[in-house]
């Protein structure tokens, strides 16, 4: 067992790019679910359009990265509008089903062989991140080496950009949620009929919330795609959204930094368990009948599911949340 490598990957997960991408996804989801009470189960789709926005623009049509970013953001806005118009008038559980369905539709389109020319079908797209790394001010440097934790120059660049995006998003969410605009959102979460009776256009606020959270999610998609330098349709499946929910609830719904802290804890734990198990099964620590390498891969999902259940039952306000402010506890 190589414990030092296990510890170093786990520590790196505190600020790693996956943590960033999920933090952004969860910040967006927190706007939807934590503040507005919208059960959006299609958050993965917003990351997906962000990621594919860049990938298709650059890899398929050889346009610039910036155009890709613009298209990714525009696509997130359009997706929010398309999703919102039919669903925002629906009851909470209908919304959940329709958003999850919409996310699956989009994923199936990325996969479709008829669209291989543009999306690369199930293989996805690669080689679209050159422009981004060309901008890297750290290029050629040694990156960061703190002994246990190391980041290459390339990783350093995506971390700087990613954390900037995370902090900016948090700032925007903070400003909004301490304003009267945020007050309306929270009130909608509590009882939208009451808000309507006070003369607020509930539909429009929900739509604004959906767009905002979706755009923040698309930022996460950018980070995800650029970090991996590849996009693949199945990354953006339902599990992605469920992970993001777990993160939001873990960190405490309706808290500005909740998703960020949640994402850090989530990924450190997950990476630690994942790498310990895979080390263990590679080194035949467990007998073959108990756990093979491929079985070790499914353990993370089992743990996330279990964690989500336990959190909701015993600590619905998350680690840092205030029980009185969270919609999840008793009625």
């Amino acid at each position: 067992m190589n414990w030092s490598s296990i510890f170093s990957v786990s520590l790196e997960a505190i600020i790693g790019s996956t943590t960033i991408a999920y933090a952004l996804a969860a910040i967006g989801l927190n706007v939807h679910f934590g503040y507005t009470g919208l059960l959006n189960f299609g958050q993965s789709a917003f990351l997906g359009v962000g990621a594919y926005g860049i990938a298709i623009t650059v890899a398929t049509f050889s346009q610039s990265l910036w155009l890709g970013v613009a298209i990714g953001l525009a696509a997130a806005v359009i997706l929010a509008l398309l999703l919102g118009i039919p669903t925002l008038r629906l009851r909470a559980d209908y919304l959940a089903i329709v958003t999850i369905a919409a996310a699956e539709i989009i994923r199936l389109f990325y996969r479709a062989t008829d669209l291989r020319k543009w999306t690369g079908a199930s293989d996805g797209l690669q080689s679209f991140s050159q422009d981004f790394y060309d901008l890297n001010p750290f290029a050629g440097s040694k990156g960061i080496d703190l002994g246990l934790i190391t980041f290459t120059d390339r990783e350093l660049w995506i971390l700087v950009v990613g954390w900037t995006l995370v902090l900016l998003s948090c700032l925007v969410v903070y400003l909004l949620m301490s304003s009267p605009w945020g007050r309306v959102l929270k009130a909608i979460r509590e009882d939208e009929d009451a808000v309507r009776s006070l003369g607020k256009n509930v539909f429009s606020y929900k739509m604004q919330s959906l767009v905002l959270g979706g755009v923040i999610g698309a930022l996460g998609g950018f980070v995800f795609a650029l970090d991996r330098a590849a996009v693949q349709p199945d990354t953006y499946g339902t599990e992605f959204t469920f992970f993001a929910y777990t993160i939001v609830i873990l960190g405490g719904a309706a808290r500005v930094f909740g998703p960020v802290v949640g994402s850090m804890i989530f990924w450190v734990l997950l990476v630690f368990i994942d790498s310990t198990l895979s080390e263990a099964s590679n080194n035949k620590v467990f007998p073959e009948w108990f756990m093979t390498t491929s079985q070790a891969g499914s353990v993370r999902y089992i743990l996330v599911g279990l964690g989500l259940i336990l959190l909701l039952i015993y600590r619905p306000q998350g680690i840092f949340g205030d029980k009185r402010e969270v919609m999840l506890d008793g009625r």
Binding site: L39, A92, E239, S298, L308, I309, L328, R331
Partner: peptide, 26 residues
């Protein structure tokens, strides 16, 4: 009995689905 609200219960069912599905896979 614990008066867990419906949205919470629904998300719990999602967690359960994830858990059980991957136990199957395992």
């Amino acid at each position: 009995k614990r008066r867990t609200n419906l949205v919470t219960t629904m998300i719990i069912s999602i967690g359960l689905s994830l858990l059980v599905r991957y136990v199957y896979l395992y």
